[in-house]
Design a protein around this nucleic acid. Structure first.
Length: 800
RNA sequence: GGGGAUGUGGUGGAACUGGUAGACACGCUUGGCUUAGAACCAAGUGCCGCAAGGCGUGGGGGUUCGACUCCCUCCAUCCCUACCA
């Protein structure tokens, strides 16, 4: 009798074998390299479905590439600094470090039980001083290169807990713990000049083998726009307000200016004007997140101040608007209510003049599209495009404007007022900041002694005060800093003498980067910036960190993202325990293509397990035998061989070019279903055995990247101790070729018949044969055929 | 508010270049095996219709001999929106 498929035993056995031989440890050699990286996880406690899916995709591709004789590097590590550790510390009275270490241990065990072929010798964690020491050095190098500066900027402030809150800690405008109304507060913070690289970040998107939607999102985020800067002189005094607009053609339609509540003029006016002061107070009661600002009711207040329109010399009112962002452009918007939806809404609400200066097909204001100018003096009749140029010339002539290129991208604020992060390596000498020398790095995060509760560094006097009377910086880095360069550090993670070494330029760039679509903008843009800045500091070579990108969709349950708050999480561990890693991996790959979201379904896991049992039943107890293949194959044998080879061709293509693991698995299932029963019997002929052996070899090899344990175990038993990952099999095109095809016969585009036809039959003969098919004949009846469309080797369509 | 995606049977999905809609699986139905159940095996399964046939890829419109695929428009859901990672 056959032994039962027992994943627990074979998975343990195979994993032990891999570990003993250090099978997946990487080394530089002269083969073509393939650096396959999956986004490292935040160690939140245990793996969730998204991780399992992400890392299975990465492992399948790594294993496939290894079979194709690439030198594969697939490391894994931990994005270990961050907010959840501090929250857990407060709730569970465990220090962020202990909590994090514990989680890493758990999750590492889970990753190993899933059989991922990582090179664990290069493991890293961002909370390790051995890691962040180098991050502090990069900061210093950036600082010396003039890429770092300090400026005031806005944060969410909880006035009760007296802490800065992350956007997700603000719920309905209230602090999540205190429940207090959150306020906008301005504090001094560190920034990195990512905008210096705005043009390059935009231009080099073109050369990336990334999904078009991600490139488009980054392009829109960077938001390069061409327009005009226009200066409006204040009616009183010598001050003026500068605005940026992408639509200088609408300048005759300007009826007001709106400035940000955080604009210097707003603040100055609030000192003398009680109403403005109250209005600004009201504007503070909100969350500092773009979506919230944009969705909030548009409020404004007339400052009573006027500016002079640079061309018409009209006096225009200056308003303060809660929707105007200080960070974007100049913090002043020129209001053109006739041609902008938001300005129209605002002007209507506050009864500000609305002027039409553009005419096109649309009848009702506002008309945001371009058109022909009206009510614009001697610019009347011009197209928007021409008028824009002419108006800019006019502004230049009047010395109150110029053409200007503006980016939506803002500089990157990297200061966080938190404990569990990398200390910013700066000391203050009488308020003057200085970056510490490399010899003093790492500036270590102080350990928590008396209580596990994290307190911000600003309250830790031992940390702040230095013997030299200098004071330490108390902000820590944004955790996006940690994850912006880990892909490069992986290549030299075991080197404590140097940040990077000769291996770095061998492995870089990452050939395939796999991660969630939610990182399409921030993480990926910051990493691209880091790479370019590190390149300019001669730390790395090449212009881009990630050559190819695969963005996986979310894992959903009942149509929405699995999350604790929704209470719809499914723990992968119970499925690993019940069915084994191979089944979970197979399920993940079979259920939907990587880029789409995946709807979790319990019963489909059962199906994946069933398929592996069938493979087990087919193969175990069978031994590969060599035959000289001089058989006269029967029709059935030829068909099986054709199916085997064409399946291999399809699967190779699905892996290599499409990452379509779901269709690859489906066609392997089809192949398994296709094997005739007699071939499996002991009484089968040698030629049948030969064909079956060939099929089994292909099936095991094709499935090995997805379900490596069962395939390796069966391979060893079936074929001997040779490594299944030694090679990817070749298909034979001659076996696949067939000289017949099924002709589809349509009438008016609807299928009315089918016919087997020899390839290369001439069109006339095909038409004559098609028309004689019984069903086709009755449809045509006596109607006249007006037109015939023939698609070679595929279909014929009669139009009647 | 802005940016990006997605929408196909009871369910997950397939259709890769405008050319057979529903591959492969789950579920369900019927039958076999079994004392019974589980497991396994076999057959069936988009909807309407006795049938011929008709209808069908979120809704509406368009291009085409032919549209899940291209265009316009509307709706729903999801992701991102700079301090969650």
């Amino acid at each position: 009798m056959f032994d039962e498929y027992n994943p627990k035993i074979i998975e343990k056995k195979i994993q032990d074998k891999w570990n003993k031989s250090d099978k997946y440890k990487s080394a530089v050699d002269n083969r073509e390299k393939f650096y396959c990286l999956s986004m490292f996880p935040y160690p939140s406690g245990k793996l969730h479905m998204g991780h399992v899916r992400n890392y299975t995709i990465g492992d399948v591709i790594s294993r496939f590439k290894r079979m194709q004789n690439f030198n594969v590097f697939q490391p894994m590590g931990w994005d270990a600094f961050g907010l959840p550790a501090e929250n857990a510390a407060i709730e569970n009275e465990v220090s962020p470090k202990d909590w994090t270490d514990q989680n890493i241990e758990n999750m590492k065990n889970q990753l190993q039980s899933l059989g991922f072929s990582y090179d664990w010798s290069m493991e890293l964690r961002t909370c390790d001083p051995k890691y962040y020491k180098w991050e502090q050095l990069i900061f210093k190098k950036f600082y010396d290169a003039g890429l770092v500066y300090k400026k005031k900027s806005l944060v969410n402030w909880d006035p009760v807990d007296e802490t800065v809150l992350a956007n997700e800690q603000v719920i309905d405008g209230k602090g999540w713990r205190s429940g207090a109304q959150v306020q906008i507060k301005e504090i001094d913070q560190w920034f990195i000049k990512i905008t210096s690289y705005a043009d390059e970040l935009l231009d080099s998107l073109e050369q990336l083998d990334w999904p078009e939607n991600v490139k488009l999102m980054q392009k829109n985020w960077i938001g390069k726009s061409y327009g005009a800067e226009v200066e409006y002189k204040m009616e009183e005094g010598n001050e003026s307000l500068k605005t940026f607009s992408t639509r200088p053609d609408t300048i005759y339609g300007v009826t007001f200016l709106a400035i940000s509540p955080n604009h210097q003029l707003s603040i100055n006016l609030s000192k003398t004007d009680e109403n403005i002061k109250l209005f600004l107070e009201k504007c503070k009661d909100r969350k500092n997140a773009e979506a919230d600002i944009a969705k909030a009711e548009k409020l404004g207040i007339d400052t009573g101040k006027k500016v002079i329109h640079p061309i018409t010399k009209e006096k225009l009112p200056v308003w303060i608007g809660n929707f105007v962002l200080l960070d974007y452009g100049t913090g002043v918007v020129m209001g053109v209510p006739g041609h902008d939806e938001r300005d129209f809404e605002f002007a209507t609400k506050y009864q500000i003049d609305i002027k039409q200066v553009i005419k096109n097909d649309k009848d009702d204001l506002p008309i945001p599209d371009k058109g022909i100018l009206i009510n614009s003096d001697n610019f009347d009749g011009m197209t928007s495009e021409n008028a824009s140029k002419e108006i800019i010339n006019k502004l230049i002539e009047l010395e109150c404007g110029s053409s200007l290129i503006q980016f939506r991208l803002r500089d990157w604020g990297i200061s966080r007022q938190r404990y569990w992060g990398c200390p910013i390596p700066v000391v203050y000498d009488d308020h003057k900041p200085m970056v510490v020398n490399q010899e003093e790095m790492p500036i270590q995060l102080p350990e928590l002694k008396d209580s596990a509760k994290p307190i911000p560094l600003s309250q830790n006097q031992n940390f702040i005060n230095l013997s030299t009377n200098q004071k330490r910086e108390t902000d820590t880095f944004d955790t996006f800093m940690d994850s912006s360069w880990y892909y490069a550090r992986f290549t030299s993670a075991d080197n404590n003498e140097d940040i990077f070494d000769s291996r770095t330029n061998y492995w870089l760039p990452v050939d395939l980067y796999i991660g969630g679509i939610e990182h399409a903008i921030l993480h990926l843009l910051y990493s691209r910036f880091f790479h370019k800045a590190m390149r300019d500091l001669d730390l790395v070579e090449g212009d881009e960190p990630f050559k190819k990108l695969l963005t996986q969709g979310m894992v959903l349950k009942d149509g929405s993202k699995m999350s604790k708050s929704k209470g719809n999480t499914v723990d992968p561990q119970q499925y690993i325990d019940k069915y084994g890693a191979d089944t979970v991996r197979l399920y993940m790959m079979f259920t939907s293509p990587p880029e789409q979201s995946l709807e979790w379904s319990e019963s489909s896991v059962e199906g994946a397990s069933r398929f592996l049992k069938r493979i087990w039943k087919l193969t175990s107890g069978r031994k590969y035998e060599e035959y000289d293949d001089t058989f006269e194959f029967s029709k059935e044998e030829i068909e099986l061989r054709r199916k085997s080879h064409s399946t291999l061709k399809k699967v190779s293509n699905d892996y290599e070019n499409r990452f379509a693991f779901n269709t690859a698995i489906a066609s392997i299932m089809e192949l398994l279903n296709f094997i005739p029963e007699e071939f499996k019997k002991d009484s089968s002929t040698n030629s049948q055995k030969f064909c079956l052996n060939e099929t089994i070899v292909f099936i095991l090899k094709m499935l090995a990247p997805i379900t490596p344990h069962i395939c390796e175990d069966l391979w060893n038993k079936f074929y001997g101790e040779k490594d299944i990952e030694l090679s990817w099999p070749d298909f034979d095109e001659d076996i696949i070729l067939i000289d017949e095809f099924e002709l589809i016969i349509q009438i008016n585009g609807k299928v009315r018949g089918k016919l087997n036809i020899k390839k290369d039959t001439n069109r006339k003969d095909i038409e004559l044969k098609a028309i004689e098919v019984e069903n086709v004949k009755s449809f045509i009846n006596n109607s006249k055929i007006k037109k015939t469309i023939y698609v070679k080797d595929k279909l014929i369509n009669f139009v009647i």
